[in-house]
Simulated scan of single mutants.
Amino acid sequence: MLQIALTSILVDDQDKAEAFYTDVLGFRKKQDFPAGGARWLTVVTMGVENGTELLLEPMGYDFAHTYQKALFDAGLPCATFASEDVQAEYDRLKALGVVFRGEPTRMEGMPTIAVFEDTCGNLIQMFETP
Score class of each variant (00 low, 15 high):
residue 1 M to G: 09
residue 1 M to V: 00
residue 3 Q to P: 03
residue 3 Q to H: 05
residue 3 Q to D: 05
residue 4 I to V: 12
residue 5 A to T: 06
residue 8 S to W: 08
residue 10 L to R: 15
residue 11 V to A: 01
residue 11 V to I: 08
residue 15 D to L: 09
residue 15 D to Q: 04
residue 20 F to Q: 03
residue 20 F to C: 01
residue 23 D to G: 00
residue 24 V to M: 01
residue 24 V to G: 06
residue 29 K to H: 00
residue 31 Q to W: 10
residue 33 F to C: 00
residue 34 P to G: 06
residue 36 G to F: 12
residue 39 R to M: 14
residue 39 R to K: 15
residue 39 R to P: 12
residue 47 G to K: 04
residue 48 V to K: 10
residue 49 E to S: 04
residue 51 G to H: 10
residue 52 T to V: 14
residue 54 L to P: 05
residue 55 L to H: 13
residue 55 L to P: 02
residue 56 L to P: 11
residue 56 L to Q: 14
residue 60 G to R: 05
residue 62 D to T: 10
residue 66 T to A: 14
residue 66 T to I: 12
residue 68 Q to G: 08
residue 69 K to Y: 08
residue 70 A to D: 13
residue 71 L to P: 04
residue 73 D to S: 07
residue 76 L to E: 03
residue 76 L to H: 00
residue 78 C to V: 14
residue 78 C to M: 01
residue 79 A to L: 04
residue 80 T to W: 06
residue 80 T to K: 12
residue 81 F to Q: 10
residue 81 F to W: 11
residue 81 F to E: 05
residue 82 A to T: 04
residue 82 A to I: 11
residue 82 A to Y: 08
residue 82 A to S: 11
residue 82 A to P: 06
residue 83 S to L: 00
residue 85 D to L: 02
residue 85 D to V: 05
residue 86 V to N: 14
residue 86 V to G: 12
residue 91 D to H: 14
residue 92 R to P: 01
residue 92 R to A: 08
residue 93 L to T: 03
residue 101 R to E: 09
residue 101 R to A: 07
residue 102 G to T: 02
residue 102 G to E: 02
residue 104 P to H: 07
residue 107 M to T: 07
residue 107 M to N: 08
residue 108 E to L: 07
residue 108 E to R: 05
residue 112 T to D: 03
residue 115 V to N: 01
residue 116 F to V: 00
residue 120 C to F: 06
residue 122 N to T: 08
residue 122 N to F: 04
residue 123 L to V: 03
residue 124 I to V: 08
residue 125 Q to S: 15
residue 126 M to V: 12
residue 126 M to N: 15
residue 126 M to H: 14
residue 127 F to G: 13
residue 128 E to N: 12
